[in-house]
Nucleic acid binder design. Structure first.
Lengths: 146, 146
DNA sequence: TATTACAGTTGCTTTTGTCAACTAAAACTA
DNA sequence: TAGTTTTAGTTGACAAAAGCAACTGTAATA
């Protein structure tokens, strides 16, 4: 891969990162921090329901995570119940309030996307979607060894 | 914009964010933190040579920035010289060591990109580049009002 | 049964980041 | 030009975020 291509890709990366920085802060207008929002997302939408899974998914310290979960539980967004099948672990489930928060987060994220792409014609939108699909199709997700 | 498109875009965003998380940590294998790396980049490659410019570019607190710059100066990567034209400000210039660090950062970032796209054929690479160009061409960079 | 591995919590520490007060210089205003 | 207001940067105090290591209880294993 020639240096020109690399340069172009890094340029895109800077562009993209800056573009979605706002989106990245989709916890805004919420009382949740970014990590907290991501936790709700992982618990509520993806199938992560134990702490270990979360530490792996978000690559955060388990001690730190423990405190974060306590905080979410204190705020009534989350419930940690004992797991009879493995008493070391606790099962994580969003409460109704937690689900509601998650829904809000999603709405806000949708809104931000809508906003970013507001000026595109349907054709252009489709072009962008196709472009995204192309990138996803080709680039490997597997994390390469350090 | 229909919800299907929004969904697709958010999916791409998750994909992309995860993909480039490694790259995002291009300070790895360096003694620099992410912010510090970004500072060197802004000072050395983009034309930011005063503190205000940096606070704007990276949207960080000026007090925090001041300390970061002191740290970089202490480590010999940066020089702050008085500006005769405006004695309130100081001109920021990378030292030779700073330039060297920046070069290392760039090499590492290039390497990570190369690694990510290692398995693509030239044709596929070109398709990805085109796709990136399409996205950049269409999506507005202007930050929309909160 | 003894040992080892694992999940989670807690205390302690460091890092990171924020806020407000302050100095000195520049820009503006009357 | 004197007086006022902005601006750039520094510093101190503090809060939030994150990491590390020791510890408890449970599960897996030899």
């Amino acid at each position: 891969m020639d240096s020109h291509a690399i340069h172009q890709i890094r340029h895109f990366d800077r562009f993209y990162t800056q573009l979605f920085r706002l989106t990245d802060k989709y916890h805004l207008h919420t009382t949740l921090t970014l990590v907290e929002a991501r936790l709700l997302l992982e618990i509520g939408e993806n199938q992560r329901n134990t702490a270990v899974q979360l530490t792996q998914a978000l690559t955060i310290d388990k001690g730190y995570l423990s405190r974060l979960l306590t905080k979410l539980e204190d705020r009534g967004l989350l419930q940690r119940t004992n797991n009879p099948a493995d008493k070391r672990t606790k099962i994580l489930v969003l409460t109704a309030a937690g689900e509601a928060s998650l829904a809000t987060i999603n709405e806000r994220a949708d809104e931000q996307v809508r906003c970013l792409f507001a000026n595109l014609t349907p054709t252009e939108t489709q072009q962008v979607l196709d472009a995204m699909a192309t990138i996803q199709a080709h680039v490997q997700t597997k994390p390469n060894a350090e």
